[in-house]
């Protein structure tokens, strides 16, 4: 692909902290290489801001390989930018052309309060996982991998759901700020495997209770979450979660 440089206009959300109101700041960025990643472009802008004695734009990032789920940016009306099944860190500037204006916002959801600029507090996801997104394993020697047979189709489906990186794009995209795609991926990942069976009912009940407590909305199966998920988690996982919850709720003795 041919390399080119471009001049861009960036409108970035700047917010000092959770309590203060934010606003958009406009920046002109020149000579941006089409080979840069989106985060590298922000890095270059931040170096300039720092050299000018201004505060750099705060944003989350870690692996920059599309696997940690840290980079949360809502770019031109879409979480993680224009590319399908992609994270912000894997978005490259060849997606844009000279003269483009790019609007960058943080994830918007009351359950994800803005910490600073583009950084939001996603610890609600951690608390949902702590409520039940795990399996209990006895201590001692690891059991042989082949000791428990797992149907291939279920193993594949479980693995597809385990791909979720908890980036929060589903919440950002959802009109209701629902965390159901994230949560359903965790539930499906574990409930499809024999190791997840003993805590199957308590898991889904406790995770839904925590999700409701955190202030996420309910799922109305619109599909926006599925369309922006960088790991292509399917909305059918949410339907599976509903089934798990109904089964747990209707069969419990208490």
């Amino acid at each position: 692909m041919e390399h080119y440089n471009m001049n861009l206009t960036l409108k970035v959300w700047r917010q000092q902290n959770t309590r203060t109101a934010g606003r958009f700041e406009t920046y002109k960025v020149s000579e941006v290489s089409s080979e840069m990643s989106f985060l590298e472009m922000i890095d270059v802008l931040n170096e300039r801001l720092t050299s000018e004695g201004k505060e750099p734009i705060a944003f989350d990032h870690d692996c920059r390989e599309g696997i940690c789920g840290s980079c949360a940016m809502y770019i031109n009306g879409r979480p993680h930018g224009p590319w399908h099944a992609n994270t912000t860190c894997q978005l490259h500037m060849r997606a844009y052309k000279d003269g483009d204006t790019i609007v960058v916002e943080p994830w918007r959801a009351n359950a994800f309060p803005v910490i600073k600029d583009l950084m939001v507090d996603r610890s609600a996801f951690d608390r949902i996982v702590q409520a039940g997104g795990y399996i209990s394993v006895n201590t001692g020697n690891a059991v042989d991998a082949n000791a428990v047979a797992v149907e291939k189709e279920k193993a594949d489906e479980s693995f597809a759901n385990a791909m979720c990186i908890a980036c929060g794009a589903c919440v950002a995209a959802c009109k209701n700020s629902s965390a159901m795609l994230f949560m359903s991926a965790k539930v499906a990942h574990l409930s499809l495997l024999p190791q997840g069976a003993p805590e199957r009912n308590t898991r889904v009940v406790n995770m839904v209770a925590q999700m409701d407590k955190e202030g996420f909305g309910s799922c109305t199966f619109q599909g926006a979450c599925e369309s922006v998920c960088p790991k292509e988690i399917k909305i059918t996982s949410i339907a599976r979660l509903h089934g798990e919850y109904l089964s747990a709720g209707l069969t419990s003795n208490k």
Binding site: K11, F24, Y74, N76, G77, R78, V103, E105, R108, A173, K175, Q222, G223, A224, C225, E226, S227, V228
Partner: peptide, 10 residues
Amino acid sequence: YAVPMGNTGS
């Protein structure tokens, strides 16, 4: 959002 998602995906 300043730029809403619109009909993208839904």
